[in-house]
């Protein structure tokens, strides 16, 4: 069983988001970077599956050398090897082109990623890879078991849950409930230093979209405080003043 897990590096969730260069670039100053939390769940579940029934887990990232600490962390958590496509990730389409180009000759049984990155929130990777590799894709997976070349899955659907079966190979995106993240132990951290991390040069793909500028949301006006003794007044305010009920 060969599993590929696509990871991206994102700002830590406590980051105050700001921009530089006339609001065209994310301000990375003082920002701690982490493996995208959903990607980490995908990785952990991939390890659980391969530990149970044998196999290997490869992590792949499209990024410049600055993402290597996150890739090493993925190796410390337990991935067998890693690939970094040496390119600035320009947009989701560009990244998917790079990953699918790498994956097309590698015969992965399962390709997993997070349901979205918590920085750009595109949520497109599983679908783009599925189409580019001509594989089924299932988003927001909350459970997956693999047996006899078949994945038994649960996924979130609007307003509920669906159980389904998909013949491997397939692409899936991890939703929160999939598993609990693992903290790498000292042995894992030591082993990660010598695990193979292959750097691959990108293919000439183009980005279809370009972010031209960023903006922070406007600050909220003052909060109108209601005396707790008159808490019932809230309903009237929401109806007459805010006009939302």
């Amino acid at each position: 069983m060969k599993v590929l897990v696509c990871i991206s590096q994102v700002p830590d969730t406590t980051t105050k988001v700001g921009f530089t260069d006339n609001n065209t670039k994310f301000n990375t100053q003082g920002v701690q970077f982490i493996i995208n939390p959903y990607d980490e769940l995908a990785l952990t579940r991939a390890l659980e599956i391969t530990e149970k029934q044998g196999g290997t887990v490869t992590v792949i990232n499209v990024g410049l050398a600055e993402t290597e600490p996150s890739i090493r962390k993925a190796l410390a958590i337990g991935a067998n090897d890693a690939v970094r496509i040496n390119a600035e990730p320009m947009d989701a389409f560009f990244v998917a082109e790079q990953i699918s180009n790498y994956a097309k000759n590698e015969n992965f049984d399962l390709i997993l990623t997070g349901r979205e990155s918590i920085d750009y929130n595109g949520g497109m990777m599983a679908g783009l890879l599925g189409e580019m590799l001509q594989l089924p894709s299932v988003n927001v997976i909350t459970a997956i078991e693999v047996e006899n070349g078949m994945a038994k899955l649960e996924r979130d659907i609007d307003g509920g849950r669906e159980r389904l079966e998909v013949k491997l190979p397939m692409v899936g995106s991890a939703q929160k409930e999939l598993t609990e993240p693992r903290i790498p132990n000292m042995r894992g951290i030591m082993a990660a230093r010598t695990k193979p991390l292959t750097v691959v040069e990108p293919i000439g793909a183009q980005a279809n979209t370009q972010t031209t500028s960023f903006e922070n949301p406007p600050a909220k006006g003052a909060c109108k405080l209601i005396d707790p003794a008159n808490a019932a007044d809230l309903i009237g305010l929401l109806h007459n003043e805010a006009k939302v009920i």
Partner: peptide
Amino acid sequence: NTYSGKTIAPRTAAQLGAGIVSG
């Protein structure tokens, strides 16, 4: 951009060679 929308939007875009923006 519902769960189903998010599932089909990127696949549709890839088939059409279309640029896609979500959210």
